[in-house]
Design a protein around this nucleic acid. Structure first.
Lengths: 93, 93
DNA sequence: AATATATTTAGACATATGTCTAAATAAAGG
DNA sequence: CCTTTATTTAGACATATGTCTAAATATATT
């Protein structure tokens, strides 16, 4: 869970994730929506990928990024379990 | 949302929140569960409070902390909305 | 008032993080 | 091959973050 929350703690990365909820995007298309360099965006993408919040696939010269909805569901679940605590179970890491 | 995610990005703070799901706790009781100093825990508590994930109330010498479940629900909602965002965008005509 | 207990605040310090520029890698098209 | 396009990697740098010790504040007790 730590990599996930670290990844979510930056506004640029959350914005990237939001963009990816709409459609899959090439790295360059993502970068075009920000005022920071492509290199910095690439770095953010690597952090999101490390956290498995996104995945990538090469398509010709471009690399296309997409959301990993599974990990989002796991995180949603974390919150849900969290709020239903106090009665039972203790399984955080 | 930024303060909330920043606050959640640290494992010590998530552990504190977990403890508070069980019962309200004095600052000292919280600190007893960690190997870092009380001053450091106090700093973590101030970050959680700044994000409004917790609230505090003085009781005699002690200060008792408790979860602010409202903000948790808002965050759960953020995730939920997030995941339902792109659900219809692929059917565009 | 003086002392003890609980907690926070201030200041310092090392490490982590986000950003940049420049260089490297990968694929496509002459 | 050589050049262009797309993206990442490497290295540097300033700021943010988590931690500590020491001092300050607030309350309770004697």
């Amino acid at each position: 869970m730590n990599a996930i929350f670290k990844a979510l703690s930056d506004p640029t990365r959350r914005k990237i994730l939001e963009m990816l909820t709409e459609r899959d995007l090439k790295a360059g298309d993502i970068a075009d929506n920000f005022s920071i360099t492509k290199a910095s965006i690439s770095h953010h993408l690597s952090i999101l990928k490390e956290a498995e919040l996104i995945q990538s696939e090469r398509q010709g010269q471009a690399i296309v990024y997409s959301l990993n909805t599974t990990v989002f569901q796991e995180t949603l679940r974390w919150f849900y379990d969290f709020m239903n605590k106090g009665s039972d179970s203790n399984d955080e890491k």
